[in-house]
Design a protein around this nucleic acid. Structure first.
Lengths: 210, 210
DNA sequence: TCGTTTACTGACTACTGGTCATTTCTTAAC
DNA sequence: GTTAAGAAATGACCAGTAGTCAGTAAACGA
C-alpha cells in the first residue's frame, strides 16, 4: 500500500510550507527581527513543530539562503549562454549578479547576512559557489575563464582558479560596500552606485583582457 | 577647586576601564556570545553601571571597532611613508592590511561584524575610511592614487575616488572570503590564503600600473 | 474497537538586554 | 563633626524569545 509514500510526501509538503512561511517573515523582517513564533503563526503550526523539521532558527534561515543562491545560479547560467567569448561571459556573470541584486535585494541581504554571521553552518550551495562550483558540481567561473584564455579574450598569464576566487570575493565586497554606504557614497563621493558598479566592470575588464 | 576636574577624570577613567573589560570579552567571545553581565563582572561593576556610560551593548561594541580601525589606520600611515611612488604605496597599503589582519585577527573580525550587522550605527572612523577619509579627515587612498598618477606609476585613465572605493571593497571582500573559507580553500582549490593574497596584489598591480 | 505509532501542541525553562527605584558614597556648607 | 543635597552605583526586576518536553490528538493496522 502507498500509505508510507503518501506520508512521506505529506511530510515533505509540510517542510516546504514551513520554509515558505519562514521565507515571508525572514525576507521582510530580517533574521534578528523574526521570531520563531511568528513563523509558526504564518505556517499555522505551533513553534514546537518547527523544531521537528528544523534543528534551529539558523538552520531554517539557511534554507532561504539556499533558495537565494539557487536563483542566483540560474541567473548565471542564463547569462553565460548569451555570450560568445570568455571575457564577455565573465562580464555577463557580473551583470547577472547585479540584476539578481536589484531584483532580489531581500535574498541578497539574507545571503550576505549568512556569509558574515553563520560561519559555523554548512551551506553547500553558497560555500561551494565561491570556490568555483555550484550545487550541481559545475565550475562555471573557472570554466568561463578557461574559455576566455583559450579563445584569446583573456590574457594567458592569469590563474583561472585563483582569479575566480578573486572575482567572487571582490564582487561580494564591492556590493557590500554599496549596500551599506549607498547614501553616503552619493553625498561624500558624488558617486552613484550604478556608476561604481560599471566602473568595477570596466576595471575588471582591463585587468583580465589579453 | 579642582574637585570637578578630578571627578571628570575619574569618570573618563571608569569609561576606559569599561571599554577595556568589554574588549577582553568581546574579542575573545564575539558579540553574540558576550553578555553585559560578563563585561560587568570583568569590569568589577554592576550591569546597570555600564548603561550609565554606554547606551547599549552595540554602542559599547563599537568602541572596540573604533580602536581596531585606529590601529589599522596607523598601519596605513606607516606603510605609506616607506614607499616612493604611488603604485608602491598602494601595494604597501594592501600589505599593511594583511599585516593588520594577521596580527589582530580578533579586531578584524569585530570590524567585519560591525560592517555587516550594525548598519544603523554611526562609526565615523570605519565608515569614513572606505570612502577615502580617515578619522582626521585625511584622504590617504585617494591621495596615494593621485600621487601615482602624477609620478607615472599608475595609469592616467583611472578615477581616483572610484578606484579607492573599489580597492577598499575588494580587499574587504577577498579577506572575508579567506577568513570564512580558509580550510575549504586549501582542500577544494589547493590554494593557500597567502598565495591568494599575493595573487590579489599582483592582479591589482596589473590593473593599475601605467 | 483498540492498542500503537506518529504528528503536533503549547506551557514552560533558561537566558539576556535593558530599566529604575533604592542604596551608598561624596561633597560642601554650616 | 553633622547634615543635607547631589552624584554614582546597584541589583532585583521586566520583557522578549530560542528551544524543550510531557502530554494530547490523529492516523493507522489488526
Amino acid at each position: 500500500m502507498g500509505t508510507a509514500e503518501r506520508k512521506e510526501r505529506e511530510k515533505e509538503q509540510r517542510r516546504l510550507s514551513i520554509i515558505e512561511a519562514a521565507e515571508k517573515v525572514f525576507l521582510s523582517n530580517g533574521f534578528d527581527n523574526t521570531t520563531m513564533d511568528e513563523i509558526a503563526d504564518v505556517a499555522e503550526l505551533s513553534k514546537g513543530t518547527l523544531y521537528l523539521y528544523f534543528k534551529s532558527k539558523e538552520e531554517l534561515f539557511l534554507e532561504i539562503v539556499k533558495k537565494g543562491s539557487q536563483i542566483l545560479n540560474s541567473y548565471f547560467k542564463k547569462a553565460v549562454e548569451k555570450e560568445k567569448n570568455g571575457l564577455d561571459k565573465v562580464k555577463a556573470i557580473g551583470e547577472a549578479f547585479i540584476k539578481f541584486y536589484n531584483k532580489h535585494k531581500e535574498y541578497h541581504e539574507a545571503m550576505m547576512f549568512d556569509h558574515s554571521r553563520l560561519h559555523n553552518f554548512e551551506s553547500k550551495d553558497v560555500k561551494a559557489k565561491c570556490v568555483g562550483k555550484d550545487s550541481e558540481g559545475d565550475t562555471i567561473f573557472v570554466d568561463v575563464i578557461n574559455e576566455g584564455i583559450a579563445d584569446g579574450s583573456i590574457r594567458k598569464d592569469i590563474d583561472p582558479v585563483k582569479t575566480s576566487l578573486l572575482l567572487w570575493g571582490q564582487t561580494m565586497g564591492v556590493l557590500q560596500l554599496i549596500q551599506m554606504r549607498g547614501k553616503s557614497l552619493e553625498v561624500e563621493c558624488k558617486t552613484k552606485p550604478e556608476d561604481l558598479m560599471s566602473y568595477f566592470f570596466e576595471y575588471t575588464g582591463h585587468a583580465l583582457k589579453a
